[in-house]
Each structure stands twice: as C-alpha cells, then as structure tokens.
Write a protein that binds this DNA or RNA. Sequence first.
DNA 1: GTCTATAATTTGATAGAC
DNA 2: GTCTATCAAATTATAGAC
Lengths: 191, 191
Amino acid sequence: MQAKTSDKLLDAAEFRMRRGGYNAVSFRDLASDINIKSSSVHYHFPTKEVLAVALVERYSERFFELLKSEADGAKTPEEVLKAYSATCEKALVVDKAVCLCIVLGAEMPGLPQLLQDSVRRFFDANIDWVERALPNTYPDALRNRKARAFVAAHQGAIVMAIGLGDLEIFRGISEDSLRGVLPSKPNIEAL
Amino acid sequence: MQAKTSDKLLDAAEFRMRRGGYNAVSFRDLASDINIKSSSVHYHFPTKEVLAVALVERYSERFFELLKSEADGAKTPEEVLKAYSATCEKALVVDKAVCLCIVLGAEMPGLPQLLQDSVRRFFDANIDWVERALPNTYPDALRNRKARAFVAAHQGAIVMAIGLGDLEIFRGISEDSLRGVLPSKPNIEAL
DNA sequence: GTCTATAATTTGATAGAC
DNA sequence: GTCTATCAAATTATAGAC
C-alpha cells in the first residue's frame, strides 16, 4: 500500500525544510521530488503557510509518540529525562538533520503567524513534558526553569552537532545537561 | 561623519537575516532600506554569498571585541565565563534578535559553501575561547567537551528566549550551564 | 487528483549612461 | 557610486480541462 500524496509531500517538505529553513522550500521542488506538477501541490495544501503548519503538526505528533515509547517503562526522573535525550538523538542520527522546530524557531520573526504559533506550541509542549519528568521535590518555579534549560541545551546541541558535523558532540551535551537538571550528584569527571 | 554605504547595507542585512535567515534577505529590500537601487548593492557586494560572508565576518569581529572588553579584568574561570554569558545576553537584549550564526547554523546545509565555512569558523572560535577560559585542572578532552556544551547551551538558550518571547529565560539557562562547566559546587537550589 | 497554461511578483544579476 | 533599463529564472498562486 502506497503512501498518500499529501504524506509524500510532507516527507519532501520536511527533508528540505530541516536543511534550509522555510524559505528554502518551494512548491516546484516538492512537486518534482515526487514527480507531480506544482499546481497539484496546491490541491493538497492551498498555501505554503498551510503546508508548513501541517508539517509542524505532524512532526510534533511523531516526536511525542516517539518520546512516549522511549519513556515506556522508565521510572526515575533520570530514566525519563534520558528518554527525552534519546528521542532527540534518534531524530538527529537517523535523519542527519536538525529538529524542524529549531530551524523554524531561529527564523521565527520572519515566519507567517500561524506557523509561529505552531512552532511555539511545540516548544511549550517540550518544556511541559520535561517539567513533569523532573523530581517533584523541586519547587514549581525551579522546575520550569530547569525544564527550559534542559530543552534549550538539547536544541542548541543538535544545531551544533549538525553544524560542526560531529554527531558525538550531542551526547556530551545531553549528559551534561542531565547532570545540571538533577539533584546534585557530584560531578565526578571534574574532580 | 556618515556611515559608509557598505556598512549601512550590512546593518540592514544583519537586521533582516537575524530575523528570517539567509533566504529572507533580498537585494531589493536592502536597497530600499537605505534608499538606493538594488543594482547599486551589487557595486558593493557582487553576489549575495559575498555579502553574507562579509556580514558574518563583521559580526564575528564585533562579537569577539565585545567579548574581550566584557572579560577585561576577569580573573577566575567563573568570571571569564560570565563575561561570555554577558556578551551573548547583551546582543540578545539590545538587538532583540537571535545570534546571526545560529540562524545560519540551523540552515547550514542549504547555504553556499563559503558561508558555511564562515559560520563554522565562528562556532569553532567560540568553543576555542571558552575552552581557554576553563580551569586548567581539566584534562584536555574534557575541556573541549565542556566548552562545546557551554556554547551550545547558550545558543539554544538564545533561540528559545527569542522564540518564546521571554528574554528572562536566557539568564536561567546561562547560570545553569555555568554551574555545569565549573568544578562541582553543590547545586544549592536543588537540595 | 493531476494536468496545462498562465498570471503576477520577486529574485539575483548585468550592461551601460551619468 | 548611483542610476535606468533590462534579463532570465524562480516563486506563489489560480483557472479550467481531463
């Protein structure tokens, strides 16, 4: 059974957008990627903004599905947070590309409004997820702060890993940020 | 005394590129920003790639000058690293925009080669600078790893702060990442 | 659903006058 | 250094046939 045309279009759009940003994607390129004409793309997605919003929504759903399955069976905060790192790393290693939402996040002010909203929701959901995973001994304000730091460090790490062409860099950063967010275990390496 | 046309063009390009990425900048927009015609832009910068490379070089020079002056008089590793955070924060707060090189870094694979090289040099120089600031009690491999994590966390923090429209988020993350790279002081808040 | 055809705009870039 | 004029290509999008 074949993938639907709209899904093939989103696949092509995701590949291109994660490598060059919103403006690096054109309807003609997407059409030629899957051997149809650009006018046919408009049948599935009337405008580029609509296409991009649909793409972010699909990306977000898949990310959280993967996250859920990675975190399956995890008990301690440490295990749950490691599932978050593993989810990011998997997307990074498999696709050899940056997170869709960090590319779009970086060019945020230049994006159409509905797309900005979608990207923002993705990050809010990320922070929310991490926040719930943190030890409940933390006061609320600290939990939120730690969660933001954890997510930001991962997104930064992904960009650096791809930009410097060194996927190993990601692991080091995610380990460091895990230590940063958990109640102080001594930093053994640094002693 | 007036700014040179080429500088005004770079100012306009920096403003636009830090908000929308490489492809969000057009010669016509830049020209109209400073009230000349787009053909005149080509007199100063023959191609867009050349313009963007010049922009990254100028951005990098200014960043490291500011960094140098912020770090002036700093003695301990902690003080020097705080100067790095302060430099990033200043650019963030003053310009209300993301670091030029993180926008370009995110769309790296879609950029012309010379521009990719420039962006990469900026990040390498960042890591190098942070690496030198770290305590020399660290073994070399660890220093490099810590430096990468520190830079990545800051870049991620900048994108999140702008993307979520909350500049305060940056400070929390930079404090956390400072704690992460320095020899273990107990994480007081978390106890 | 996909096509042809086309419109309207924008883009990076060049030639040559002043 | 800046202009007018222009180009060739690319872009988002629409109308209407099949």
